[in-house]
């Protein structure tokens, strides 16, 4: 059975709607980076990148790259008026010190207590952690955006993560291809779900109990 679901871009669009005016935000490498392109009109958001830039903008036009001006994913960026540069210790003071309003990361697995696994799939290959373990601590809100299930259909939202942890009890909200959920002392609380997917269908593809504490809204996103 194939459930109707949001595309990656649509998940990014939905996450972007929750970023408030004036926020300082770090977007992880990959799908989270795409959130910036869906920032709603009229809001000012300042983006932070681990390698020492606050207030960066879009990618430069091809051929205009300056490789001393990159983001944590080593992609060329531009800066906006009011941007600043700083060293790596100051950059992570912004992260761990509670100065970011929001960090958005990808995930292999999220547990119902907010544990996150997103850096290692086990022992094979070269391990690499980057800034993920730092980013999950300190930001006022830590959100995850991800497909609801793995490529072979297994749940990514679980009672407990089975892959190596990035951080314990750190995630506060999850945007998936099927739903928006908050992590609460109860566990996963369903806030929105894609119309056309029933609560029971959603529960079947979720590895931990779903809870409802207020009306569940429709999760809708435009074609983007």
């Amino acid at each position: 059975m194939t459930l109707p679901k949001l595309t990656g871009a649509q998940i990014a669009w939905r996450a972007a709607q929750d970023i408030e005016d004036g926020a300082y935000v770090n977007l992880g490498i990959g799908l989270p980076e795409r959130i910036a392109q869906f920032q709603p009109e009229g809001r000012t958001v300042t983006y932070h990148t681990e390698n020492g830039v606050l207030g960066f903008g879009d990618a430069p036009a091809p051929g205009q790259e300056d490789w001393d001006l990159i983001n944590a994913g080593k992609k060329a960026i531009t800066i906006k008026p009011g941007a600043s540069f700083f060293n790596h210790a100051d950059s992570f003071a912004m992260v761990r010190g509670g100065h970011l309003d929001l960090a958005v990361l990808g995930a292999y697995q999220v547990a119902e207590n907010g544990d996150l696994a997103n850096w290692s799939v086990g022992s094979k290959g070269v391990p690499a952690v980057g800034g993920a373990m730092d980013l999950v601590h300190g930001a006022k809100r830590v959100a995850v955006i991800t497909d609801h299930v793995t490529k072979d259909g297994k749940p990514k939202l679980m009672r407990e993560c089975t892959l190596p942890l990035t951080g314990k009890a750190c995630v506060t909200r999850i945007y998936t291809s099927l739903a928006v959920l908050d992590i609460t002392p109860m566990g996963f609380v369903l806030r929105e779900k894609v119309p056309g997917v029933s609560f029971d269908q959603l529960q079947t593809v979720t590895g931990a109990p779903l809870h409802i504490d207020e009306t569940v809204q429709d999760l809708k996103a435009p074609e983007v």
Partner: peptide, 30 residues
């Protein structure tokens, strides 16, 4: 393998004469 912010702070601590410090980063992980 060292988390990026921990790597930065360990180097900063080395330069600042601080032999050890506490960070939330990596707690509960491998």
């Amino acid at each position: 393998l060292v988390p990026q912010g921990t790597l930065a702070e360990r180097i900063r601590a080395g330069g600042a004469g601080i032999p050890a410090f506490y960070t939330p980063t990596s707690f509960g992980t491998d």
